[in-house]
Design a protein around this nucleic acid. Structure first.
Lengths: 156, 156
DNA sequence: GTATGTGCAAATCGTTTGCAAGTCA
DNA sequence: TGACTTGCAAACGATTTGCACATAC
């Protein structure tokens, strides 16, 4: 996991060609401290002072272009963003939304294979990879529902 | 690649618990003939007679629930759908949008590893995996732009 | 001082919902 | 017939755009 201390955030931002404004520094700090990819909404809630959502969208877009952060799609209908650290991916529970972070796996090998086999492409710049499943807790709940003599007892 | 002849589409649809209406049969046929994942817009354009987009959204959603088709995310801001055939994934050119289809690679091994390592999950139900890069054609164009003595000459 | 960043209002786009009418089994 | 489908209108939520003002460097 990439680490950025508060002094270096300023340098990082400037090197990317942006002004080190409070808004951009705050957003980067929030993403850095987050333990999971955040939505625009979640970033907005953590921001103090509050910022217009438009500002957040614009900052995230710029950071993404410079590859400082990356976009993650959990198929929830809205984008999630996280620091673009070393490759790691996620399993998302389709029942409760719980997210587990995965270590690198053998993705690098796979990417090399992919580009070697490709007829049209010569380099890969990014990828998206998420796994969806049902977490153990939800799995148990589901089994309970199926076998329960009284469906009304079961809460979601 | 899974094949469905026109008589069997009806059976497939009924087995999934849906009525074999012209709209659903047409949409399945379109997806079957498509060489790449289609957007709702693209399905709408190919439909004859035309159908309300709402109808297309609803049919695609139902087919997805029954795992007859799958959702593919190219980070283009709208969903793409394709028949849920054997695992294959895509490389998408971030410059021109060109799509190359990949063969299975070593994904199955990887998924087994993933679930073995996971503390919270016991089964995976689906995944998303797309690679983004710059295709050879666009790569050449970009190099031209950089080295060109007259930027105006280069078209996008 | 000037290019860049920000906030506000409004537009846009993909997608979803409610409801009445139509259709398949 | 009756449940499932469809179309239309309208709502919705995420994201984008235009423009005037503010700020970093």
């Amino acid at each position: 996991m990439q680490r950025i201390d508060s002094q270096n955030i300023v340098l990082l931002v400037r090197k990317a060609g942006f002004k080190a404004t409070p808004a951009i520094l705050a957003i980067l700090t929030i993403l850095q401290r987050a333990k999971k990819p955040l939505t625009v909404q979640e970033v907005a809630e953590k921001l103090n002072p509050k910022r217009d959502k438009v500002t957040i969208y614009r900052i995230l877009e710029k950071l993404k272009e410079k590859r400082i952060i990356r976009h993650v799609d959990f198929q929830h209908g809205h984008a999630h963003y996280e620091l673009n650290s070393d490759d790691h991916h996620h399993i998302i529970c389709t029942a409760c939304g719980k997210i587990e972070e995965l270590e690198e796996c053998s993705l690098k090998n796979m990417m090399q294979q992919v580009i070697k086999k490709s007829a049209l492409f010569m380099r890969l710049t990014s990828h998206s990879m998420e796994f969806f499943g049902v977490c153990k807790t939800c799995d148990k709940k589901m089994k309970k529902i199926v076998s329960s003599p009284n469906l009304m007892k079961v809460r979601t």
